[in-house]
């Protein structure tokens, strides 16, 4: 099938919230629905896909493209063991060389231009869905990737300090982004502990309600909730985790998020 769905980025205000897991699961769910999908590992600070979805062959990376060592976008996607899913990798940052630190603002502006062209071309060469596993925080890189995407999912963990830190700046960032082009921005709870009694239920419910309200005020749409999964958590400790093993763990919320995204685009799949 070749319905163009667009470009989605998974974002969070801090690391460890679950961007990568959400990106991979969402991309896998889309691939399973016969959507030709590519994930870009755009977290240049902490790239993870080299480890989680080990490349089957060598090839140029997203950084090579941004650095203008490669100009043909077709050289970037590499297949993996999940049908319909390709990966554009990023290399682990070189020790002692802070890739992000020595790039100037001008460089990042040109990098936005290059990435926007790449995004367009990935769709031109047949990808229905481009998923960008973003860097967390407010770096120029993460904001650039937010600009590329027409849909974003902010992954948040229920922790007061986590969401609180986010709130101050998300309003402004999303306002600027929405002013640029039509887009849909979701937020998704992740690593939510399943309460064991009424008391815990109440604490959690109050917390989530409070932040749901606040996210709504900033124009973010509710994307759903992924519970904490011990299987997923421990499973990722291994040297060669098989991502497909964890798909069932997050399947329900991920499928429902994908339904929402597709519905918003007026696309039906099963």
């Amino acid at each position: 099938m070749s319905d163009q769905i667009g470009t989605l980025t998974v974002y969070s205000t801090r690391g460890g919230n679950g961007k990568t897991i959400t990106s991979v699961m969402l991309a896998t769910a889309a691939a399973k629905r016969n959507l030709k999908t590519v994930i870009i590992d755009a977290d240049l600070e902490a790239p993870s896909l080299m480890h989680l979805l080990k490349p089957v062959r060598d090839g140029p990376t997203w950084v090579d493209f941004l650095e203008e060592n490669v100009s043909d976008i077709r050289e970037l996607p590499r297949e993996c063991n999940i049908p319909n899913l390709d990966i554009i990798y990023s290399p682990l940052p070189k020790v002692g060389k802070n890739f992000l630190g020595w790039k100037t603002k001008d460089w990042w502006q040109q990098s936005l231009k290059r990435s926007m062209i790449a995004e367009e071309e990935l769709h031109d060469i047949g990808y229905d869905l481009v998923v960008i596993d973003n860097q967390s925080g407010t770096s120029l890189n993460s904001v650039n990737n937010m600009v590329l995407a027409d849909t974003s999912v902010m992954v948040i963990r229920p922790a007061t300090y986590g969401v609180g830190a986010a709130e101050n700046f998300i309003g402004e960032m999303y306002r600027v982004l929405r002013d640029l082009k039509p887009r849909q921005d979701y937020y998704m709870w992740n690593q939510v502990h399943v309460p064991t009694d009424d008391h815990e239920s109440l604490i959690l419910e109050n917390f989530l309600n409070r932040w749901d309200e606040s996210m709504k005020l900033h124009g973010l749409l509710y994307g759903g909730k992924i519970n904490f999964s011990t299987k997923l958590n421990l499973g990722l400790l291994g040297e060669t985790p098989n991502m497909m093993d964890f798909f069932e763990e997050t399947r329900k919320p991920i499928d429902s998020l994908l339904d929402k995204l597709l519905q918003a685009k007026g696309i039906e799949t099963s």
Binding site: K105, D106, Q109, Q110, L112, K113, M116, I117, E120, V143, V147, V176, D179, L180, K181
Partner: peptide, 26 residues
């Protein structure tokens, strides 16, 4: 560069409308 969100956000509307069109067509 036009690919500067801070710039786009601070331009007068009659200019930013054109600037936005341009950056959305890199």
């Amino acid at each position: 560069s036009l690919f500067n969100l801070g710039l786009i956000a601070n331009l007068p509307p009659h200019i930013s409308i054109i600037a936005k069109k341009l950056i959305l067509n890199p």
